[in-house]
């Protein structure tokens, strides 16, 4: 069927590698520029919060990394599902690359949360539903990374970690709704889907900017890591060996 052709072409690691060759430097420059300008905007040109003072500014790192840790999980799980259904090698490589980036972002989210919690709440850590479910997300990411290394056979490793990734998707709505379903120390979401956001516009613009910045950064890191994974797994093919010879 002709309509599926683009999809099958996407399954070719070589095609992906060659296509993304020219994207990487542009994405890198764009991502770093967005992060740097967003940080300067959030740190220097945004008013302090009336109650929390300057400590609220960590929101500009804390919330985007935590959001990306969650949406990155969906990307990873969907890649795993595509890999399982279509037996697509590239999808599994994307899944593996997303796991490492997701684990890093989750750690950053937890770490910045602890740093923010100490001056505002008065504690680094509290076992409330939001923080605990976020820790579970971190362990899920680590589990997928560990499973990838646990098998000698790459195919078995891919299938098992894809199933773990898919089973773990249940945790994402739990993290998202934990602050509404249970009494927690963590505050509810500032950006709401159905209602008005509860942040002043002068503080919201750099927030939106930083969210976009982290999406671009995620895309950049994902493509870069996937390219490395392609070279690693396709090292015995003639095209990679020719590439290495040049």
């Amino acid at each position: 069927m002709a309509s599926w052709q683009w999809f099958h072409r996407l399954g070719s690691p070589r095609w992906f590698y060659e296509k993304t060759e020219s994207w990487v430097p542009w994405l890198a420059v764009f991502a770093i520029w967005m992060i740097v300008t967003g940080c300067i905007w959030g740190l220097a040109f945004t008013p302090p919060d009336a109650k929390q003072g300057n400590s609220f500014r960590i929101l500009y790192i804390h919330a985007p990394t935590s959001m990306l840790a969650m949406s990155g999980y969906y990307l990873m799980a969907i890649s795993g599902a595509v890999g399982l259904i279509w037996r697509m090698k590239l999808a599994f490589m994307v899944m593996k690359s997303a796991a490492a980036i997701g684990a890093m972002l989750t750690f950053l989210g937890l770490f910045t949360g602890a740093v923010w919690g100490k001056p505002t709440w008065g504690t680094w850590w509290e076992w409330d539903a939001r923080i605990t479910s976020m820790l579970v997300l971190f362990f899920l990411y680590l589990g997928i990374i560990a499973l990838q290394e646990a098998y000698r056979d790459q195919d078995a490793a891919d299938k098992t970690s894809a199933i773990l990734a898919l089973v773990g998707t249940v945790n994402i709505p739990i993290i998202y709704k934990s602050v509404d379903w249970w009494y927690t120390l963590h505050q509810p979401a500032t950006f709401k889907i159905m209602e008005k956001s509860t942040i002043a516009p002068s503080m919201a613009y750099p927030f939106v900017w930083m969210i976009l910045a982290f999406y671009v950064t995620f895309a950049w890191l994902l493509i870069m890591r996937t390219r490395v994974e392609i070279l690693k797994r396709e090292r015995r093919t003639t095209w990679v060996q020719e590439l290495a010879r040049d």
Partner: peptide, 18 residues
Amino acid sequence: TKVLAKHDENYTPPEVSD
């Protein structure tokens, strides 16, 4: 034995709050 402050999801600059 322990008191933690729970802050909310609203962020406002001091001038607006005043």
